[in-house]
Nucleic acid binder design. Sequence first.
DNA 1: TCAAAGGGGACCCCATTGGTCCTATTTAGA
DNA 2: TCTAAATAGGACCAATGGGGTCCCCTTTGA
Lengths: 153, 153
Amino acid sequence: MLRLSKLTDYAVVVMARLARDGALPDGQVQTAPGLALATGIAEPTVSKVLKSLGQAGLVEGLRGARGGYRLTRPLEDVPLSEVIVAIDGPIALTACVDGGLGSCEAEGICAVRGRWDPVNDAIRRALSGITLADLAGVPRRRPATMLAQLVAE
Amino acid sequence: MLRLSKLTDYAVVVMARLARDGALPDGQVQTAPGLALATGIAEPTVSKVLKSLGQAGLVEGLRGARGGYRLTRPLEDVPLSEVIVAIDGPIALTACVDGGLGSCEAEGICAVRGRWDPVNDAIRRALSGITLADLAGVPRRRPATMLAQLVAE
DNA sequence: TCAAAGGGGACCCCATTGGTCCTATTTAGA
DNA sequence: TCTAAATAGGACCAATGGGGTCCCCTTTGA
C-alpha cells in the first residue's frame, strides 16, 4: 500500500507536541512520560521514537533528574524526509536499489535494473519539500490552499 | 523503509517485457509462462501480477488457446502511480488517512490529524510524473540526464 | 473434443514491524 | 552523599500482512 511506518507517524506527532509545549531549541524540556500522556501514545513507544530521533539529531535528550527532550531545530526547518530516514532508514522504494549486486536472482535478465533511481529521487524531493510545520497545527507562513502546489514544486 | 511491494516491482518488469516483446495494443500476445521464462519471475507470481493489472485495465487478457496478455497502452502513457494503485491499492502513506473516523484511538488529541493529505498528494504527483517508459530500457524521448529534473517537476 | 491458456480465489509461511521490558548511566536536589 | 527521576541502549516477543503457491473453473483455437 506504499505506506510509511506507524513509528514515523508517531515521530511527527511527538515532535509537533514538543513544539507546541515549548520544548524548542534552548528551551525547556519535555519528558517522555509527559509526552505519552499528552499524545495518547504508549510511553515505551514514545521513548523508542525519541531515542531514534535523538540519534538522528532531530531532538536533544537531557539525562538525569529534570531531564527530558527538546527540539534541536524549529519545525519549519525539519523536512519530513529527515524524520522518515531517522525512523525507517534510507528512503528507497525497492530492494534492488540498496542491495547492490547479487541481491536479485533475476539480475541478468531484469529489464528495469538501475532504473528506479529517478523514482527514489522524486519521492525524496517530494518529502524534502514538506516540513513538520506543514504537518503540525502550528502557524504556517502560507495559506493552506497553496500547500499542494508548493509541495509539488 | 517506505518501500513499495515487490509485486509492484514485478509488475513494472512484466509490463516492460510485454512492450519489448511486441505485446502492444492490438498486437500479438504473450503468455504468462512465456513471460515468466523471459523475466526470471516464478510463473504463478507472474500470473498473479497480470491478473491485477488486467483488472486495472493496464493489460488485456485474451483467454483460450493461443491466448495471452498485451498492453492496452504504450508505456509512455502509463504513469507509475497507476501500476502501484493496481497492485498495492490506493496510495496513502498512513492508516489515518483512509480509515476515516474511529480508526485511531488518539483521535481526540492527535495534533497531526488530517494533515497528511499534502504528503499523499505530493507522493501521488511525483509518481504520476514518471511513466513506465522512463523505467524500462526502451527508447526514450529525452536524454537520461534530464530524467531527475522532469520527475521532480 | 481436447489442450492451452486466462480468471478468480483460497491458502500457508515467514519476515518485518510494532510494542514491551530490562538494565545501565546520568544528574538534580534533599 | 544518597536517592529518585530521567535518558540510553538493547534484547525480546507477538502479530500483521505480503510473497508465493496451488486449485478449480471458464474460455477458445485447432
